[in-house]
Structure formats: C-alpha cells, structure tokens
Simulated assay, not measured.
Amino acid sequence: MTQTLPLLDKTVLVPRGENQAKSFSQLVERFGGIPIEIPLIAFRPIEKNQRLYNSLLALDTYDWIIFTSNVTVETFFSFFNKREIGGAFPRIAVIGKKTAEALEAMGFSPEFVPSAYVAETFVEEFSPLLDRDARVLLPKGNLAREYIARTLTERGARVDEVVIYETYLPDESRDKLARMLADLKLDILTFTSPSTVDHLMAVVKQYGLNEQLSNCLIGCIGPVTEKKLRDYGLPVHASPKEFTVKEMINSMVAYLETEE
C-alpha cells in the first residue's frame, strides 16, 4: 500500500529557533511537507538586577517555585549558583512535559505537573496543594500572562513574580518572513504561542501583507493562541485538544484529508 503524504510539497512555517526546530521540522517532513524554519520568537536573559538577586538569595523561604516553560527553566538556572545561593530548594511545579524534561536535565524533579498544559488547568489542579499564605516564586518572561499569579493570589497564596528573560523577534526572521509572505511561498502557518502571532502580524502590518495571509492555512497550539489569532480576524484550521506540536500537525493533516 502506498503511504499517503497529506502535506506533500506544501511549505509549512516552523516558528521555532534552531535548537527547537529539528523535531518540529521532522514531523512536517514525515507527511511530505517542506519545513520553512523562521523563528518568530527568541529569548534573551535580562540583566541581573537587585530584584532577581534578592529572589535567588531568598529561595529557601519559598514553599513552591513554578516553571511555565523550558526557556524559564534554562534561564533561571543560568542565574542560579548553588554554591553562592545555598539553602533548600522549594518544591517545584511545572507546566508541560517538555518543561519537566528541561528541569530533570538540571538535576531536579517536579512534584506537580498538570493534566493539560495550560494556565487555567494548572491553577485548578495546583491550588488544592497550596496552604493558605504559601509563598510561591514565579520566574517569567516579560510578556507572560499574569493569570497564574493573579489567580493563586486570589486563593490565598503570596506570589512573587520575577522577570528573568525578554521575548523579541529576530531581525533576520522579520526580513525572511516578509519576503516569503510577499512571494506566496508559505502554504501553512503554525503558531505555538500568542507572541508568535503578534510578531508575525507586526510584520504583516509593517509590509501590508494582509491579503497574502488569505492564501494560508493556519494551525496553532492552545486556546490562548487560538483566541489571539481570532482577535486578528484570522481563521484557525487546526487547533488540537492536546497542546503539542505533534498533535497540531496531526490536526492539520486531518483537516487536509477531510477537505480533499
């Protein structure tokens, strides 16, 4: 039996950086697609400041620390010096399997991982584990949502947020994306976070490329990313219930097979 290739010769935007794009691109190729790697989001640690330094020094006074992404884990531990900080490490909660894997690579294990990798599910399942007045440290990026901190605070926890990295769109990505959209060289756009949507739409607005988007199919991960796309008036053709790249690609394949 001949294997069908639903993505045959279709170009698929892979919005991740070099270190994260490989497995994503391999999935696209498995279905016959052509991955186009254009990082729509990049991260850089903030300059170490007094607030961050104080949080690290007081680490043993927190009951929990929450990591929401592998980037948060990697950036936090780039600042963390066990010999300098000392003391006990708080209990650890994470959102997502990839985040847990990044943490384990640092020699730590999470005590809590939610059943679904979104902030709303995390809060509902994590809240019962918190004593009233529990102290929680939440390292985050400069564009991260405030939902977790706000909701846990409303439920009696004392949450300290500390920004440890900033999010940006690389200049080379801006130029490449503009060229490929203008030349109608992208068949399928995929988005892994609301920031990737914002960054692409900033390029679309800057170069007047709204009309070119009408030729693209769109897939995304998670309800917040989907909402961001719809806020821009864009259709969403694939948005799986399981918030992983693999399921997003499977969902897009299912959409294409149904259409055909």
Rank of each mutant, 00 (worst) to 15 (best):
P114E: 07
T244A: 09
E242F: 05
A88E: 13
T61F: 02
L57Q: 15
L5W: 03
G96A: 05
Y147W: 06
G33Y: 08
P139G: 07
E74A: 13
R16M: 10
S25H: 08
L129Q: 12
G87W: 04
Y255F: 15
L5V: 13
D9C: 09
I92N: 01
I36D: 09
F89E: 03
K97E: 15
D171K: 14
N215R: 12
T225C: 08
P35S: 13
V163Y: 01
A238T: 03
K185I: 00
G233R: 10
G141E: 10
P110T: 04
T99W: 00
Q212R: 15
E259H: 09
F76Y: 04
L177Q: 07
I164F: 05
R155E: 10
A149N: 05
K205R: 13
G87D: 01
T4W: 00
G219N: 08
V71M: 13
Y53C: 13
E166S: 14
C216N: 12
K98V: 04
K10V: 06
G87L: 05
N81T: 11
L27Y: 09
A182W: 03
I41A: 15
D160Y: 02
E260P: 04
T4C: 08
G156S: 07
T75S: 05
V162G: 15
G156R: 09
F67M: 00
F122P: 07
K246E: 14
R16D: 12
T121G: 07
F76E: 00
Y207M: 08
L189H: 09
K140F: 00
G107W: 00
N81A: 12
V94A: 09
L56P: 01
K10F: 03
T244V: 02
L209P: 02
M201V: 02
A102Q: 00
A105G: 10
L27A: 13
Y207S: 13
A88F: 03
E84A: 15
L129N: 14
L56M: 11
P235L: 06
L8C: 08
I221A: 14
L256P: 04
A100W: 01
L8N: 11
F24V: 09
C220F: 00
Y53D: 15
N142A: 11
L7C: 11
A105Q: 12
P139R: 03
R30G: 11
P15Q: 06
Y62A: 14
S195P: 04
M1I: 11
K228W: 05
G96T: 01
L129V: 05
P39T: 02
E260S: 12
L181D: 03
E154A: 15
